[in-house]
Write a protein that binds this DNA or RNA. Sequence first.
DNA 1: CACTTTATTGCAAGTACTTGATACAAAGAT
DNA 2: ATCTTTGTATCAAGTACTTGCAATAAAGTG
Lengths: 107, 107
Amino acid sequence: MTKKNITAHCAVDYAFKRIGGKYKGRILWVIRDGFMRYGELKRAIVGISPKMLTQTLRELEADELVSRKVYLEVPPRVEYSLTSTGEELIPFIKQLRSWGEKKMSQN
Amino acid sequence: MTKKNITAHCAVDYAFKRIGGKYKGRILWVIRDGFMRYGELKRAIVGISPKMLTQTLRELEADELVSRKVYLEVPPRVEYSLTSTGEELIPFIKQLRSWGEKKMSQN
DNA sequence: CACTTTATTGCAAGTACTTGATACAAAGAT
DNA sequence: ATCTTTGTATCAAGTACTTGCAATAAAGTG
């Protein structure tokens, strides 16, 4: 799978296109600590449908933010982890998350 | 106009819902330096349709990230600026932008 | 008076994003 | 043999997001 070709008007646009999407931020955040199996992710990302989770993981993989390791076992076992590029985004998500926490508590 | 009521699963989700959207990041980034008239924004955010710009600005306003000042002149004159909450987001966008610049140049 | 200017608005139309339901493989347990 | 488990695919359907086009106000200019 090749890297998604993103057409952007500026770096801000580019970055938002790469991590934007309904669940991408949450998925990256949940995977941050290490390897996560598909099923663990499904439980962690409350509200996501299996369909959407698979699809979003594929996009993140094509976009080289997440890597996917398949174990040839039955029942299947697939582990996801961040690539180094994905890891670079964690500080940003962390900050954004703090901001979110602060703002949520201000309601 | 009241603040948009965001239902989020976690702080990451919340934050992304608040600044996610095709043009929100770029708009906030462009406004960062001070007051911007509608027309200036339209020229700065290449590719956005007037309709979309207005709509997104309304969302940002309802969400208290941007404030809108109308001058009672003809032809009309409307200036947009960041609220203090909007300003808090600039450092993150800046960081994200640096990441984007770096990644774009790596192609 | 007709024309230009600025910041919108309304509506129809098109495209993109998400979900839901159903189905599958193939080893291990019952 | 049947059931369970895990990760995913397929296809139809629904919802949300974006765009395009036309139209408005009301003062200033020629």
